[in-house]
Amino acid sequence: MIYLELLWSFIQIGLFSIGGGYAAMPLIQHQAVEVHSWLTMQEFADIITISEMTPGPITINSATFVGIQVAGVTGALAATLGCILPSSIIVTLLAFIYYRFKGLEAVQSVLKGLRPAIIALIASAGISLFKTAILIKENGGIEPFALILFIIAFIILRKWKPSPIAVMAGVGAIRLIAGL
C-alpha cells in the first residue's frame, strides 16, 4: 500500500537525518528518487529550491511535497507523520531525561561545555545565511542594496528590539517594492 510505503520511507529519513536539513537531503534523494522513483532528479532539485524559498524544515516540506505528488493529501499526511514519528518519540524521551537530571552537577558541567559550542554553531549557520542573502549568485560579488538592508535591519533590531518576524516581513516588503 502506497501510504504505508510513504510512511515507512519517511520514518527512515526522519530517523537517520541527524543534524537537520542538509543531512536529510541525500536520504530523501535515496528514498524518493532512487528506491521508489516517486520523483525525477529535476523534481527533487525543485523541492530543494522551494524548501529554501518557503518557511519550514526541509524534511517536512519534502515529505509534504512527495506525499502529495504520489498520493494526494492523505499521502502527504502519511509522509509527514513518518518524518516526525522517530524524533517525536526520541526527543520527548530526551526532554524527560534532561528535565529529570539537569540538576545534577555532572550533567550541568556537560551542558556548560555545550553552550559556547552551540553559540558557535549558530554563528556559523548565520554566516552561511548572510552569504546567501547578500552575495550575488552569478559571480559571488556583494549586492550593495542587500547589504544596506541588512545593516538597517540589524541596527533596528539592536536598538529597538522589535519582533524578528516584523523585521523579516518589513525587509521582504521593501525588497519587493524596490524591485518592482
Binding site: 549557520a125 548565520g126 545565511l129 538592508l149 541588512f150 535591519a153 523579516m168 521582504g172
Partner: peptide, 17 residues
C-alpha cells in the same frame, strides 16, 4: 524578491542573536 528580502531579515536576526 520577497523571499530574498526575508532572507536578509533572517540574517540580521541571527547576527543580532
Amino acid at each position: 524578491l520577497v523571499m530574498e528580502g526575508m532572507l536578509i531579515g533572517v540574517a540580521a536576526v541571527i547576527a543580532d542573536l
